[in-house]
Design a protein around this nucleic acid. Structure first.
Length: 462
RNA sequence: GGCUGGGUGGCAGAGUGGUUAUGCAGCGGCCUGCAAAGCCGUGGACCUCGGUUCGACUCCGGGCCCAGCCUCCA
């Protein structure tokens, strides 16, 4: 039985799909005006793992992750660069796909874009106006009237009067209530715009997600996800828009992932303390980043540091080392049920990936032990490691080539290393230990570690 | 100020009302020409003060501290 933490009720609940055997899920994706940073990577990886787990449980999942390709920042950045918004967003959508692919994130089933969903957006705004939930201001903008919607604040645990008394809400003459938010923004001269019954303009940020999710998944679906910072106001506003427009309950389960932090502080664009995925990929391998993200629970903070990435590196080396030299049976290989049960139980408990990884380490020990004892169970144990790790999108590479792999382009090539290893082998054969150790030190300085085994010496980059 | 969430061993990070998390690091041993990898063993923790309980790190209450949201943000 799958239990997940629902932000709406702030407790773990049993997951019961609307339609038996099927899950409809929407996750807020990126605004594409810059490269993905680690915070974006976390959303991508966390929900990728959630989708994989749901599918492993046998659910038929429809996964939608949108792209916001029109908003103020995109307009501003395009103007800065002297390019069109289409050129800008095209580049960063491609970059996002590259990063996601590198991290082993499976593509969503649908990836709608705001600019391609104008009809749905306009239709929903019109419905909201017709039903009296929205109004046009004197400046042409269309606003959502927050006080008209009864449940406003339920998701974020906020009361309207608290929000109103907050000093951080700017006074705006055009709005009837300072809490009202914009659905349609009138275009200023020179700004990109789309025709609309009210005035040419562009959608506000929140309406696109309401329109696209309802369009792709219907008015009522199972799971809606995103970063914790979207809980308010973005998701709160989505609920208000969607439920007012459709008259139906919008989403059953809300899932929000925690932040990536740097020195105990949220990683964000505004603080400027962010690291892009492609920057980190210069020093670490994609799988190391993925492991690092999964090494803490998705709702906990994830502290970015070299030390923690290095720990991820070491952990993967241990797991891959356990898989080395084991003939893993292909096809529907028999696996070891007790470990699989533990793994599934961990994932069923609100997607507890650290616990699931612990199962992998217990298995790795079992593999190593079995191998030492020449136990026939070794291949089954190894197959179980690989199969379960695969559900997290990990450990699918060939172990030997993974361990020999490199991150940075500098350093000796394989031929150079092989030659030195051979030279050392010869020294060892003639028991010239001084020479053998000298060569090993030389390789060690190049970042190569050696392992002498019964059937020769093997090496790996560290 | 309002509202969330959290404080676990040297570090990272799960979990549980009484039993080894796990990984890295440490210590002892096995293995090794020496190492590495691996295996075996081992030390080390639950912010603080009260309460409930036969028993609390785990439940309840107060306090202290941290992060986040209340403004664009994943």
């Amino acid at each position: 039985m799958l239990r997940l933490f629902n932000s709406l009720t702030r407790q773990k609940e049993e997951f019961i799909p609307i339609e038996p055997g099927k899950v409809r899920m929407y996750v807020c994706g990126m605004t594409v005006y810059d490269y993905c940073h680690l915070g974006h990577a976390r959303v991508l990886v966390v929900f990728d793992v959630i989708v994989r787990h749901l599918r492993n449980l046998g659910f038929e999942v429809t996964y939608v992750r949108n792209i916001t390709d029109i908003d103020d920042k995109i307009i501003a950045r395009a103007a800065e660069n002297g390019e069109s918004i289409n050129e800008l967003t095209k580049r960063f959508i491609a970059a996002m796909h590259e990063d996601a692919d590198a991290l082993g994130v499976l593509r969503p089933d649908f990836e709608p874009r705001a600019t391609e969903s104008m009809d749905d957006i306009l239709g929903m705004i019109q419905t909201l106006i017709d039903k009296g939930y929205a109004y046009q201001g004197s400046n042409g903008d269309v606003y959502y009237s927050v006080s008209r919607f009864d449940g406003y604040g339920r998701l974020s645990g906020k009361r309207l009067e608290d929000l109103r008394s907050g000093a951080r809400i700017a006074v705006d003459e055009v709005k009837r209530d300072p809490l009202d938010f914009v659905l349609w923004k009138a275009a200023k001269p020179g700004e990109p715009n789309w025709p609309a019954p009210w005035c040419a303009g562009r959608p506000g940020w929140h309406i696109e997600c309401s329109a696209m999710s309802v369009d792709c998944l219907g008015p009522h679906f199972d799971i809606h996800g995103g970063g914790m910072d979207l809980q308010f106001p973005h998701h709160e506003n989505e609920i208000a828009q969607s439920e007012a427009a459709t008259g139906e309950h919008f989403v059953n389960y809300w899932i929000h992932n925690g932040f990536v932090e740097v020195n105990e502080e949220k990683m964000s664009k505004s603080l400027g303390n962010f690291f892009t995925v492609r920057e980190i990929l210069k020093s670490y391998r994609p799988e190391e980043i993925r492991y690092f993200i999964l090494s803490s629970h998705y709702r906990s903070p994830l502290n970015y540091s070299d030390e923690n990435l290095n720990q991820a590196r070491g952990a993967l080396q241990r797991l891959y080392t356990a898989l080395r030299d084991v003939e893993i049976p292909t096809g529907d290989a028999s696996t070891v049920p007790s470990y699989e049960d533990r793994f599934v139980a961990a994932m069923n408990d609100d997607f507890n990936t650290p616990e699931a990884l612990a199962v992998l380490f217990d298995l790795a020990r079992a593999v190593n032990r079995a191998r030492e004892q020449a136990d026939d169970a070794t291949p089954q144990l190894a197959a179980t490691v690989k199969m379960l790790a695969g559900r997290l999108g990990l450990l699918q590479e060939d172990p030997e080539s993974y361990l020999r792999g490199r991150v940075i382009q500098e350093g000796p090539d394989d031929e150079t290393i092989e030659a030195l290893v051979k030279r050392r082998q010869e020294a060892r054969a003639s028991k010239d230990w001084a020479e053998a150790d000298r060569v090993r030190d030389q390789l060690s300085r190049m970042g190569i570690e050696l392992e002498d085994g019964a059937d020769g010496t093997r090496w790996r980059r560290i």
